[in-house]
Amino acid sequence: MTNPVIGTATGHDEFITLAHGNGGRIMRRLIETVFVRHLGNPWLSPLSDAAILPNRLESDHDLVFTSDGVTVQPLFFPGGNIGSLAVHGTINDLAVSGAKPLYLSVNTFLEEGLPLAQLQQIIASMAEAARACDVHVVTGDTKVLPRGLCGGIYFGISGIGVRPRGLTLGSDQIQAGDAVLVSGPVGDHGIAVLLAREQFGLSGTLESDSASVLPLTQAVLDLPGLRFMRDPTRGGLATVLHEIALATGLGIQLMAEQIPIRGSVQSVCDMLGYDPLYLACEGRVVAIVAAREADEALRLWQDLPQGREARRIGTVVPDHRRVLIKNEWGGERTLQELEDDPLPRIC
């Protein structure tokens, strides 16, 4: 079957043009043959101005609503692309809030000149990621920007989920003595994207950790000692811990040898002068858990495929307001707040 948008017969439509955003026939064809084709469901497919949704809200649940902007260069990287990343990012924001995600909205900003084959691939990945989490894209919008005004494709994506009423999760629940857990190795996404940019003449097989963390967050949600969860994206593990220290007035004491970091991530960091603790993850969870339940939480995570490398990495302490990291031979340093985009050092 010839795809009317990719238009193999004429070759006219192999790239996004401004006409794809004109509101007319060409735009409708784009929406039908890309977005509806991959993402279609009973709520999206009528292409009405707003999605009319069945009330899936149980009486003892609250709505949870989040919004995210997604840009990444390059658009494709080992372990995912901007489409799957957008879905995972939004689902993860809901998941760490204790919610089960239900519906997403997706606004797509396309740059004139983007190859249609790439758009197909990105939206197919988006659909696959959403399906895997039983989440539906129910509404959206598409705009085309002139060449040079956006890096191929941007997404504005929002998500709605539900969570049990009365769930107390938040930094105000954190107490001195609580345990700090991380669900897997940190920095994979940051280094995978860096390698995909091929700027540094480095290559490798490292994949991004981009994934839904919903199984991880749901696994520990019933623990009464669960205080707080966050996915360490931009700014990495160190930045999440800083936010906790700032919000609670308490300190974090980390044990360096307990923090899971892949050898390949550490090697690239050593070469370029990055600190993996500040690099983005896209499929990890940091949890603060009452010390008495730390082992149980860890066991629940380690039983899941995405949590096998989970570790208890530190403790919330009352004696300072810093994020301190101590190594096994007694050396200690403070992890400062990230100041600017880390740049590779020169020698």
């Binding site: 002068g273 101590k326 190594n327 031979w329 007694g330 050396g331 200690e332 050092r345």
Partner: peptide
């Protein structure tokens, strides 16, 4: 060497 100073400081060698 800045690389040496980074290791000495970040690994907390002065305290050890």
């Amino acid at each position: 060497c800045g690389g040496h100073e980074r290791t000495i400081t970040h690994a907390g060698l002065r305290q050890a």
